[in-house]
């Protein structure tokens, strides 16, 4: 039986070293690059010939952009417009990585099934939240943790708990995406090996795999949406300190 974790293996395509660091060009880097090229292609085609009445590609690009803009408008308010480029980029990158990873090719790879990638994105969001928070509110940003109108010793306790939950934000953001992508791909692979090993009765797991593929497609899109939604909710905390 093929190892279901084999698909997550990092392969060095071009070994490189920067000082003591290993900065090899891996299959993960390759697929992130492919994701970027797909996004760039999508956006270039969509905005190549802008018309008042949009064509199909332009309508698609406008729809995605409008989706992110209204998400920030609703969750952050008018100030949220500034962060549309950031959230838009993150959303499209996660979406492209998730969807490309579903391609049933040998060598296809899902960068977002690695916690190094998702944690990198989550830390980017977390750092942005901290920088925006301190830049806008200075040390007053710490009042995010302080409960109002609470008995002092209890408030200390609650503030500590709030601090813990604030610190865990980038991790939960990263773990959610990574766990969803990894679990889905493992399931697909496990049922895929059943198809081979069961012979004629392999038709049953094949049916399951068809249904699972549809579910994975849904999860790929929904997880990109949830990542962007939570990022904008976290930004709201920093922009509009309650």
């Amino acid at each position: 039986m093929a190892n279901p974790m084999e698909q997550f293996e990092i392969v060095r395509l071009k070994p490189l070293a920067l000082g003591a660091y290993d900065v090899s060009f891996t299959n993960s880097s390759l697929w992130m690059l492919i994701a970027l090229l797909c996004i760039a292609g999508f956006l270039f085609v969509g905005t190549a010939k802008p018309a008042l009445v949009p064509g199909r590609w332009q309508a698609a690009v406008e729809y995605v952009y409008d989706f992110i803009r209204s998400m920030l408008d609703e969750n952050v308010g008018p100030e949220g417009r500034r962060y549309v480029p950031l959230i838009f980029s993150i959303f499209l990158f996660v979406l492209a990585c998730n969807l490309l990873g579903l391609l049933p090719w040998v060598g296809a790879f899902t960068p977002t099934s690695h916690i190094a990638v998702t944690l990198g994105l989550a830390v980017l969001v977390f750092a942005t939240v901290c920088i925006v928070g301190f830049a806008r509110h200075g040390l007053h940003f710490f009042s995010l943790f302080w409960p109002k109108d609470t008995f002092f010793p209890l408030a200390m306790f609650v503030a500590f708990i709030e601090f813990l939950s604030f610190l865990s934000r980038p991790f939960t953001l990263a773990i959610r995406l990574f766990a969803n992508m990894t679990a889905g791909h493992v399931l697909l692979k496990v049922f895929g090996t059943f198809v081979v090993s069961l012979g004629v009765f392999g038709i049953l797991p094949l049916g399951v795999n068809v249904a699972l593929s549809a579910l994975e497609l849904l999860i790929a899109v929904v997880q990109a949406y949830v990542f962007a939604l939570l990022a904008s909710i976290y930004l709201n905390d920093a922009v509009n300190l309650h």
Binding site: L164, S165, T172, I175, R176
Partner: peptide, 9 residues
């Protein structure tokens, strides 16, 4: 995941 993740972290 928010709940589980916070406990683990």
């Amino acid at each position: 995941i928010e709940f589980v993740g916070t406990v683990l972290v």
